[in-house]
Design a protein around this nucleic acid. Structure first.
Lengths: 358, 358
DNA sequence: CTGTTAGCGCATTCAC
DNA sequence: GTGAATGCGCTAACAG
């Protein structure tokens, strides 16, 4: 039915086939007033059964779908939450998103998901988009320090919670993990296994969380009173690909100069490193032990299962959603800042059975 | 400003700190009429420079952010596209999403991303949500056959395009991949390598695409005129975890009963299988060769790089976005149904150097 | 219980 | 070039 491009027949069926049907159309169709239709939709108990059925029938026949924008404009309430993720390609964040959604969706909230892809520019754009749409609340896994921007949003009446980054003060809320403790757990584990040459993989200048993890590791080393070399290797970012680059770097080193243990600041990087080491014939954990961070599903599933510091991503997401919906519905004051505890999950990449490398 | 519920201190700054500022406030502040402010915002050239600057200053000072809902209600245009993904945990779809976004975002469209998680119920709910918000267009990677629903949406004036599933007819649009050909490519490759006992991993009853891939493989086998055993193993779903289960199953078989080659209907499953095989000491590809499907980034990055049938996810997403924005802006009729060609990407999981298993 | 009315914030007429 | 008036679709307040 497509029209030829030069002087065609009746044009594309695509545009404007049917005018959207409004509450008024339904009212006319069923012989009641618009107000009554609205009542059937929102307060069915206020309407006589007979009329209610009649209206419902018209709704069905006409295929009426309510207009959220109009509804929003009128009520001042968008029933919508914005969720701004730092990096949708990292399972940690999609898992967190699932936690947010499972909580909020069932309670009637619509979630707008966006991905800042670790770009401050995009972060700003999306935050603005959320503001333009007058979302009721925003959950954001921020890139840097955006406290001021969040306070600004609060002042516009939008509740905000930072996820995966600790906040403070009364204005904003946050859900985070004790990353210093996480770093300690990882380092302590490696120290107890006898490692004295450890490399931390991560760029402490980029992200607070990474800095905290390194600080935790440093603390653990200091507390141990052991002669430990703790080096830092900085990947370009926190992806599998960057991990593989680091892996190549390590493989190129003469074995005597390699660390005996690696603490990667996330699992993706750890997995990338591990892939290269295994291919190069390095035995894990016998020659090099590896600890990751996040405990994403892939950590458990990699060729050599990865020891990792577990962040309860799903629970953190749900907690963030709880905080924000509570604030929005005026429930009793919950704590403003929730801090989760990390957990060491030991697998074969640090204490493995004897495996031969690929 | 609400008071604490039990006479606490000045309560939460959370709720309603500041009333959102409207175009009217800006008008008052800058001593012009609301209409002029609107012009400054949307048709700056129609306003004197002096006045324009004055208004812009007020906008800044007051922190005015336009209200999209009101705008939408007035213009009838939401400038919004809904994107409904089948499975955000599959990199294929996030990659496709990136393609959609890169095209549409730059052209001023807002994208609402949702995840049906392969649940028809959720699919229906989100489609409805999109309709309530009067998105201008919907791109959906559908679970089953939703042609009728899409036609219904079209009739409401919402343009739709199916992604990753072939459509037909004039009403709707689609972007898909020739999966039959993909299946042929994979099977032919394995046949050429001399394999005569091949297992297809996937449930052809669940998803059209999987059925097509199997059909393509069957065709290739038939065309070869070779004595080939083509079996089918049905995983519970298309995830790494399900792949691992299949892997266990294969490992439990006496080697003589195993196929010499596996064709998995997606990369995630292939990767799961491969992990288990490698751990069990099965040499890939020498004892068992594996071909995946999709060519996600992980395929290249797995311990033994995976041969795969490449779907150009990013391009498919971009193409879907192009189709829909073209339809929406009334551009010359593009083809309604775009079919991409698959590509065989050969890596070590089928022709590998001699690697020892883990 | 039901119909009528006003107005949410904005863009777009139309006069001026 | 600018201001005043109008209405998008809906809900809430009120009158009947």
């Amino acid at each position: 039915m497509a029209a030829g491009r030069h002087g065609g027949r009746a044009d594309s069926a695509l545009r404007q086939v049917g005018r959207p049907v409004s509450i008024k159309d339904v009212a006319r169709e069923s012989g009641v007033s618009p107000g009554t239709v609205s009542n059937v939709l929102n307060h069915p108990e206020r309407v006589t059964e007979a009329k209610r059925l009649r209206v419902e029938e018209s709704v069905r026949r006409l295929g009426f779908v309510r207009n959220e924008s109009a509804r929003h404009l009128r009520t001042g309430n968008s029933h919508t939450l914005g969720l701004l993720l730092l990096d949708v390609w990292n399972p940690f964040f999609t898992e967190m998103a699932r936690g947010v959604e499972d909580w909020a969706f069932d309670r009637g909230w619509t979630i707008l998901i966006s991905n800042s892809a670790r770009q401050p520019t995009r972060e700003a754009i999306y935050l603005n988009l959320f503001a333009e749409r007058r979302v009721d609340g925003i959950i954001v896994a921020p890139h840097g320090d955006i406290t001021e921007r969040l306070i600004d949003l609060q002042n516009r009446g939008i509740a905000t919670v930072m996820a995966d980054q600790r906040g403070s003060g009364d204005t904003t809320m946050s859900v985070s993990l004790d990353d210093v403790h996480g770093g300690e757990l990882a380092a302590t584990h490696l120290l107890q296994l006898g490692h004295r040459r450890i490399s931390f993989i991560g760029d402490p200048n980029q992200v607070t969380q990474v800095r905290d993890r390194l600080f935790g590791a440093t603390k653990a080393v200091a507390a141990s009173n052991l002669p430990v070399q703790l080096g830092v290797l900085e990947p370009t970012d926190l992806t599998v690909a960057a991990g593989r680059d680091i892996g190549e770097m390590i493989v190129d080193l003469p074995p005597s100069e390699r660390s005996t243990a690696l603490f990667a600041s996330n699992d993706l990087v750890a997995i990338g490193i591990m892939q290269i080491l295994l291919r190069a014939g390095v035995r894990i954990p016998h020659e090099i032990a590896i600890v990751g961070y996040d405990d994403i599903e892939f950590a458990r599933q990699s060729t050599v299962p990865l020891t990792s510091i577990r962040q309860p991503a799903y629970e953190m997401g749900r907690s963030a959603a709880q905080l924000i919906t509570a604030a929005l519905t005026g429930e009793p004051p919950t704590p403003r800042h929730v801090v989760f505890e990390p957990e060491l999950v030991i697998r074969e990449s640090t204490i493995g059975r004897d495996t031969d490398p690929v």
